[in-house]
Design a protein around this nucleic acid. Sequence first.
DNA 1: ATCCCTGGCGAAACAAACTTGCATTTGGGA
DNA 2: TCCCAAATGCAAGTTTGTTTCGCCAGGGAT
Lengths: 159, 159
Amino acid sequence: MPVSPPSLDSFDLAILAILQRDNTTPQRLIGEAVNLSAPAVQRRIKRMEQTGVIAGNVAVIEPAAVGQPITIFVEVELESERAELIDAAKRQFSATPEVQQCYYVTGEADFILVITVADMGAYEALTRKLFFDSNNVRKFRTFVAMDRVKVGLTVPLPG
Amino acid sequence: MPVSPPSLDSFDLAILAILQRDNTTPQRLIGEAVNLSAPAVQRRIKRMEQTGVIAGNVAVIEPAAVGQPITIFVEVELESERAELIDAAKRQFSATPEVQQCYYVTGEADFILVITVADMGAYEALTRKLFFDSNNVRKFRTFVAMDRVKVGLTVPLPG
DNA sequence: ATCCCTGGCGAAACAAACTTGCATTTGGGA
DNA sequence: TCCCAAATGCAAGTTTGTTTCGCCAGGGAT
């Protein structure tokens, strides 16, 4: 929830570059890296958290280690694009834990989903629940990930 | 870098569920939530970090706040699928900062990319660099995200 | 030009969380 | 039953993060 129009200077960007790689970095070290005192770093981080520049602080879990070794992409095309039905789909996808990411897109598809499952049986069950039972899905295309070459939420930062 | 075959019990899973939502949660509170002492929580976290169950701890940055408001999906199809050329593509995509995520997939495409850019001009320049100059890209399909409905790396946890 | 006010910074005191060592308990196997 | 290994809880020590304070620079009004 953004609070005010943030304007980031090069200090903020340098701090973000460190935090999006490892947010357990001590503020003292961040300060040394960007030439600022630790309290100044702390103030900037707090402000960026309040203004929503920093959306969250999370641990990244290896899916394979918790029994979800398969990552699948799905392009979903709806029958009807009525706003009401779009919203219903958004809500359903958001509420499904196996749906790790969901984007509403332009182009030949309406949604793109990133799904994490234990095995293909689980995926098959999920497709039935999400797509066949929906009555508003015209078709969907499945891409199974053989290699998670690059994974993350890292954003390129200017400077 | 996994060290040993990890086996997670329900305590570990409960801890992970908390950390992948907010890894700044004090260990004392985690302990209260899962009925364990703070040091026990700390030991388990450390072990999961060493065994690679926890792949990292990162701050999530709002792309729009740092001048990268556009998210784009790209399906890439190569001319040749020789292993050597596949590897070259993996390396190039990995090394490109705008490529936030890259997966090597089965199906009608070879790669799926998640790209973050400032504007469509930047995307156009990137396509030229990544695809047209490559001489190994048969075609690619672009999907521009209108709504990032659900974003994250959260993994569904049993229990 | 001076005064005042606002915002940011650095230094130090303070509080909280993290880490470590040790005794105890629990569970399995001989 | 006895013993050993692993994990837990407790308590102390250490690091980290947080707050408070005073200082300095920039802007606007008098």
